[in-house]
């Protein structure tokens, strides 16, 4: 089986030749090769080169046409501060108040900000790997984009103080994600990771997720799959156990598990959902390959019945040790075969 076949078989709970492995390597792919992060985040050819090199080095079953969490807000007009040794950050959010949303229009992903970089990266990666490796794009989920438009503190207070305007922001975020995601799929991505860390139960109550976010995630997942995404991959960090049972009704096919979630309990909560995770991200910086191997062994025990992708709990840090990242695919070779 190639990487894409392995992942699709796993999502469908068929038996793959081995457990798929996807280190969540984004900017680390550049840092590990001495490429300035800013160049990686603005040059699609460089991004594609680094991702392909990381795939070879780490034995990943996927590559990521993914820049950072600021692509959408930058395309809408937020100003960013680029940094030498880290991801850019928002210097000025585009919205002062939720009611200012009426002045925003969905941007054209072929022209706005760095959206074209993401599209071109998806095209280049797909051209190279064809259907041998999964090409993953990325869109922000509605809660995270709302936070990226206003700033997290203002957005959270707005959800209570101006609920109607806040809900309009969530709807706008879904429309934008469908537009940007559709363009990524057209460019070559097999699917788009829906990245929504601000929807975590660590940030908003499960009831908030159920009432405000789940219906919108359902529309987003259905829309992406309707435009050709091979699966819906929802990435929410933190203690997701209380909201996991809501994922299947949202149309989610792959659920990210952060390091703080017990995989066995998650498996019991959603037996029919493909899980992905969940090695502690900082372990790739402050640990040793043998410790990673031990952690993988514990996770792979849960993965035996299928429906599990071995990965980090969240993004692998920029400064991760290469030998620790390599330990993921080594663990699959050693322990992840039927």
């Amino acid at each position: 089986m190639n990487g894409l076949e392995r992942i699709l078989a796993t999502v469908r709970f068929q038996v793959p030749d081995q457990v798929p492995v996807i280190p969540q390597v984004f900017g680390h792919a550049a840092v590990a090769r001495g490429v300035p992060l800013e160049r990686y985040l603005t040059d699609p050819a460089e991004l594609a080169r680094c991702q392909l090199a990381a795939r070879e080095d780490y034995g990943s079953d996927a590559v990521f046409a993914l820049l950072d969490v600021n692509v959408e807000t930058e395309a809408l007009g937020s100003s960013l501060q680029y940094r030498k040794e880290g991801y850019p950050t928002v210097a000025q959010f585009i919205l002062e108040r939720p009611s200012d949303l009426s002045e925003l229009r969905i941007p054209d992903p072929r022209r706005a900000g760095r959206m074209p970089v993401a599209l071109e990266a998806a095209r280049l990666l797909r051209r190279e790997v064809r259907d041998r490796t999964l090409v993953a794009g990325c869109v922000l989920g509605p809660m995270t984009l709302a936070c990226q438009l206003l700033g997290a503190e203002k957005a959270l207070f707005a959800s209570v103080d101006e609920p109607q305007a806040f809900e309009r922001m969530l709807d706008f975020a879904v429309d934008l994600a469908l537009s940007f995601g559709g363009a990524q799929l057209e460019a070559g991505a097999h699917l788009c990771v829906v990245f929504d860390p601000s929807a975590s139960p660590a940030v908003v109550p499960p009831g908030f997720f159920r009432e405000l976010l789940a219906p919108r995630l359902r529309r987003l997942c259905a829309g992406l799959k309707g435009m050709g995404a091979l699966a819906a991959w929802l990435h929410i960090a933190g203690p997701v156990e209380p909201i996991l049972p809501l994922y299947p009704a949202c149309g989610v096919d792959i659920a990210n598990l952060d390091y703080c979630v017990d995989p066995g309990r998650a498996r019991a909560a959603v037996p029919g959902l493909c899980l992905e995770g969940n090695i502690r991200p900082l372990a790739f910086v402050d640990s040793e390959p043998r410790v990673i191997a031990q952690a993988c062994a514990r996770v792979l025990d849960v993965a035996r019945p299928g429906g599990f992708i071995l990965s980090s709990g969240c993004e692998i840090p920029l400064e991760a040790r290469l030998d620790c990242v390599r330990a993921l695919s080594a663990a699959v070779r050693d322990q992840g075969r039927p």
Binding site: L156, F157, V160, P205, P239
Partner: peptide, 14 residues
């Protein structure tokens, strides 16, 4: 008791 979230703490804190 692991039932907390930032939003509730922020509202009470505010």
């Amino acid at each position: 008791s692991e039932q907390f979230n930032l939003l509730e703490i922020m509202l009470t804190g505010r």
